[in-house]
């Protein structure tokens, strides 16, 4: 009986086995990298809006507090997108002929909503509440990045679960005193290590990593 397999099959089998391992490993790596990339998470990607609203102008140049527009952030799960009336509180008298603001004026005249697009949209299977985070000393910027410096608004972080968990596991690395939650550019003067643990104790922070804290 002659040789069933040609000697070259040895090479083919080795290449196939190692190739398969490499291929599966590579594919897994590509998928994980893709999952964390801006392409999927939209982190650092500016979202086009019906009006090119500048947080930098309103927050850094004019000094308007976050809560002037995001009124409910301290007592609701939803921070609140301001109604057209909030825009018109100032823009009924300021930049009244600016073409950029025509959609705002049109919305005010017609009573129809301005269709702002959500920059931070969590999956529907995640429960999130702004008010508790604000009360426990999580600064706006801790999750939203330096919004006050953004001319057009983007999502600073991935909002992936590993990112949430990073803080839930070690809140002492991120919390700040309540009075500075809304302050732009705040950093612990003597370093985060000096205040973290005492704030966690003082605010009674139990940032559990129990699944049902967020997936309820």
């Amino acid at each position: 009986m002659s040789q069933l397999f040609h000697p070259s099959t040895n090479v083919i089998s080795k290449v196939t086995i190692f190739g398969a391992v490499l291929f599966i490993g590579g594919a897994a790596w590509v998928l994980l990298a893709l999952e964390r990339s801006s392409y999927v998470t939209q982190a650092k990607v500016v979202r086009e809006q019906p009006v090119p609203f500048s947080h930098r102008h309103h927050v850094s140049d004019l000094g308007i507090d976050c809560r002037y527009c995001h009124t409910f952030v301290e007592e609701s799960n939803f921070a609140g997108i301001p109604p057209t009336k909030t825009c018109m509180t100032c823009h009924s008298q300021i930049h009244t002929t600016a073409a950029m603001l025509e959609p705002v004026r049109e919305s005010w005249r017609s009573g129809e909503s301005l269709e702002w697009l959500r920059v931070h949209d969590l999956p529907d299977f995640v429960y999130f509440d702004h008010s508790i985070h604000v009360k426990k000393g999580v600064g706006c910027e801790t999750c939203h990045g330096p919004v006050g410096e953004m001319a057009l608004t983007w999502r600073e972080y991935s909002l992936n679960m590993e990112w949430c968990i990073e803080c839930h596991r070690a809140p002492e690395k991120f919390v700040r005193p309540r009075e500075f939650v809304f302050q732009a550019g705040w950093h612990a003067p003597a370093g985060q290590a000096a205040i973290g643990d005492s704030l966690v104790a003082a605010y009674d922070i139990n940032s559990s990593t129990n699944c049902s804290i967020c997936h309820r």
């Binding site: 998928l31 939803f78 269709e115 999956p123 529907d124 299977f125």
Partner: peptide, 22 residues
């Protein structure tokens, strides 16, 4: 098989409305 992964977002966008949604 690979091309079939991560294509459906039904769990991300469930048939309920968020505040101010359309």
């Amino acid at each position: 098989l690979l091309s079939q992964t991560a294509c459906r977002q039904d769990m991300h966008d469930q048939p309920r409305y968020e505040p101010l949604e359309q």
